[in-house]
């Protein structure tokens, strides 16, 4: 009956995923954003982004190892969102809020987009 819940488990696992990313271990996809390259794990991308879910769940794209995003996506905004996926922290600033919002909309990360929108409104 019941279980022993390890309350730190989600954060501990995510930290390890981020360590793997930082050391480029077991990363299985490269994302090109306006000439900049980002290495990541497809499973994390798919779990966090509706856009990546649609891309990688498509049977033709299962083995895709590189992908280029639309040129309207800003690499700094994408970098913030990628960091967020691996850390749960969104490091928003006034100068990057709008580009991050646009990237979040493109990646179909609706909840993050809503947060960016509220952040921008609160600063006006």
């Amino acid at each position: 009956d019941g279980c022993i819940q390890f309350t730190r488990h989600p954060g501990d696992v995510l930290l390890n995923f981020n360590r793997l990313r930082s050391r480029n271990i077991l990363t299985d996809v490269t994302i090109q954003v306006d000439g900049q390259l980002f290495h990541a794990h497809k499973t994390i991308l798919v779990a966090c982004s509706g856009f990546f879910y649609s891309v990688f769940m498509h049977p033709e794209n299962t083995n895709l190892s590189a992908i280029s995003l639309d040129t309207k996506v800003d690499p700094k905004g994408f970098s913030l969102l990628l960091d967020f996926m691996y850390t749960s922290c969104l490091n928003l600033s006034d100068s990057l809020a709008l580009t991050t919002l646009n990237a979040a909309v493109y990646l179909q990360m609706e909840h993050v987009a809503d947060t960016c929108h509220r952040f921008i409104k609160s600063r006006q």
């Binding site: 009956d1 019941g2 279980c3 022993i4 819940q5 390890f6 309350t7 730190r8 488990h9 501990d12 696992v13 930290l15 390890n16 360590r19 793997l20 930082s22 050391r23």
Partner: peptide
């Protein structure tokens, strides 16, 4: 632990992969 349905374990749950540095 006996008779309690859910126990909260606050300690680390998995090993820690070393950072890059």
């Amino acid at each position: 632990y006996e008779g309690v349905s859910t126990i909260k374990e606050m300690g680390r749950s998995v090993h820690e992969i070393p950072s890059k540095d």
